[in-house]
């Protein structure tokens, strides 16, 4: 992307300043005087950039390059054959039209939207509830809170494998419990009408600790005397939540929702491990479909096109979130 050009610009600033002083041969006396005024600053700026340089190169290779190559690939007929022949003919917007015109695109969009919105909403509400719960001191508070982090630290593939066992047909513990309660079992992962929600459940479980910890951190920043003052005026419970907690927590809420959105819309591990996008594409999202196009069908051009659509959607929604927040805080004064 712009990484490389931008880095080029930035590094050239100190170099240009140094060049002006050092290019032309100068009388030795002058150079001594210069060294004390201009050179050390330029030199130390160059040192600073030297520290940053390896990271800049890494970012160009591992983020800049893939984004650019994803963009160019999406306009090419890039398949397995390309690796042998080296040929990837330009096809304009063919990959995009093929992806969008395929009968699946509407379903993918709906699945992605439901997965992201339901996951994020429920995770946020539960996470907020837990953060509020843990915001009052009680014995073992710290220990319990850090234990709750475990699901978030486990590799997603492991969590997915465990949930797959728990949701397994007749013998999974969820159905054993349901049947024990006299209810009928659920085909968690094999019923096309249910599978998407089963995956959402797992995703919520994984996301709760993250939301809780960040919101808890935000709650801890709110000075306790605000609540004491409000209590003197008779504001407690819900009243104090909506008048003090929520407005002061808002900046943290915005961060949580934005990060949560970005992390949720791209979820791949859980989907691949639990259902592989099935049954009958019931759990296929933009991310999982992009994977299947590129790495199962080896249609890299189309996979790239769909993953670019994924990026654009994420950016648009993130921008909307930021704008909506700005408007709301403007209104609040």
């Amino acid at each position: 992307m712009t990484n490389s050009s931008l880095m080029g610009d930035r590094t050239s600033v100190p170099r240009r300043a140094g060049g002006a002083a050092g290019d032309a041969p100068r009388p030795p006396a002058d150079s001594g005087a210069r060294r004390r005024t201009l050179r050390p600053r330029t030199r130390s700026a160059l040192v600073t950039w030297a520290f940053i340089l390896p990271a800049a190169i890494y970012l160009v290779v591992y983020f800049g390059y893939p984004v650019v190559s994803n963009l160019t690939m999406s306009f090419q007929d890039f398949t397995t054959a390309t690796f042998f022949t080296g040929e990837a003919p330009w096809v304009g917007f063919d990959n995009y039209t093929a992806v969008i015109a395929s009968g699946l695109f509407g379903k993918l969009t709906a699945n992605t939207a439901i997965f992201t919105i339901v996951s994020l909403t429920v995770t946020f509400l539960i996470g907020l509830g837990l953060a509020l719960f843990f915001n009052k001191y009680f014995p073992l508070n710290g220990v319990l809170r850090s234990m709750l982090l475990l699901p978030w630290l486990l590799p997603l593939i492991i969590s997915s494998a465990v949930w797959r066992r728990m949701m397994e047909g007749e013998t999974g513990i969820l159905n054993v419990v349901l049947e024990g309660l006299g209810l009928s079992g659920v085909s968690w992962l094999t019923d096309p009408n249910i599978a998407l929600y089963s995956i959402i459940i797992v995703n919520i479980w994984v996301g709760i600790p993250f939301v809780m910890v960040i919101l808890y951190g935000g709650l801890q920043e709110i000075p306790k005397d605000y609540y004491e003052a409000a209590a003197l005026d008779g504001a407690t419970g819900w009243r104090s939540f909506f008048s003090i907690t929520w407005p002061l927590l808002r900046p943290v809420v915005v961060v949580v929702l934005m990060l949560g959105f970005i992390y949720t819309i791209r979820v791949l591990d859980i989907i691949l491990a639990l259902t592989g996008g099935g049954p009958a594409n019931a759990t296929e999202t933009y991310a999982s479909r992009a994977y299947h196009l590129s790495f199962v069908n080896f249609e890299f051009g189309r996979g790239a096109a769909l993953s670019n659509i994924l990026i654009v959607v994420s950016l648009i929604v993130a921008a909307f979130q930021l704008r909506a927040n700005k408007r709301a805080s403007d209104l609040a004064g």
């Binding site: 990060l259 590129s294 790495f295 950016l315």
Partner: peptide
């Protein structure tokens, strides 16, 4: 220039893994 670099770092967090995998594979 520091601010620009920091913003670039934040933007990298918005790039889905599948995009990076897709771009890295041919490389």
């Amino acid at each position: 220039s520091i601010a620009v670099f920091v913003i670039l770092l934040l933007i990298t967090q918005m790039i889905p893994g599948i995009v990076i995998a897709n771009g890295l594979y041919p490389l």
